[in-house]
Design a protein around this nucleic acid. Structure first.
Length: 210
DNA sequence: GACCAGATGTACT
DNA sequence: GTACATCTGGTCT
């Protein structure tokens, strides 16, 4: 990767601005690949680089929590302003984190599915009970566990350095490194199941895998 | 790689 | 009240 990350350098990075998130959701998903997700934990600062995301296109997307205009206490954050974190609990034991996009009233989001550690790796591994490799942060539930994200972080503003935010350290990923395909776990979503809204990049081995 | 159990919040009847 | 979920980890092949 680029030069080694330091706490000082990371804290100097400007958080991504709200404008970044107010664009087309698919565009935001692609742009999020390679950016840094920063998290202030009791153990210290953690930074991970996003390598897999999925776009969820709101009221017209059967796989999306807000399909057909569903607006409930859980999905309320998705209906609000862009640049906030939408965290929900699923399968009785896992959390999933999304980034809200578009304008208020347009409930779309990008699910954060996978990352690789960049700084504060020890804290992440400890929270993942010593797991390494693909099992460390590959999967939305794992990502949340590794970064200590839960419903307490629902609605967090990602555009300022609070407990969790996103920043760009200048890494640019060429399109040929990016794999695009159908989303995971949405088989029952009708035609929406086939939409190529999943973006993944292999930072270590660009040519491998899906 | 395929299969399956696990534990509970959320949405909907 | 009840069906099911934007999954993960463990087991077996």
């Amino acid at each position: 990767m680029s030069k080694p990350l330091s706490r000082r350098a990371l804290l100097r990075l400007a958080p991504l601005e709200r404008r970044f998130y107010q664009r087309d959701t698919t565009e935001v998903a692609r742009a999020l690949l390679g950016t840094l997700l920063l998290r202030e934990l009791p153990e210290g600062l953690v930074a991970v680089r996003l390598v897999e995301v999925e776009a969820y296109l709101g009221v017209g997307d059967r796989a999306c929590h807000t399909f057909a205009g569903r607006r409930t206490p859980r999905t309320e954050v998705m209906w609000g302003e862009a640049g906030r974190l939408y965290v929900y609990f699923t399968y009785g034991m896992h959390h999933c984190a999304n980034v809200v996009t578009r304008d208020a009233g347009v409930p779309e989001a990008v699910l954060l599915r996978g990352a690789v550690p960049g700084f504060g790796r020890e804290a992440v591994v400890a929270r993942r009970h010593g797991r390494e490799g693909r099992a460390l942060l590959d999967g939305p539930g794992r990502l949340c566990q590794g970064l200590g994200l839960d419903r307490a972080d629902n609605g967090a503003d990602l555009t300022s350095r609070g407990g969790v935010w996103l920043a760009d350290d200048g890494l640019r990923l060429p399109d040929q490194w990016v794999r695009r395909g159908p989303r995971v776990g949405v088989a029952s979503a009708g035609e929406a199941a086939a939409w190529p809204l999943r973006f993944r990049v292999e930072l270590d081995a660009p040519a491998a895998g899906t």
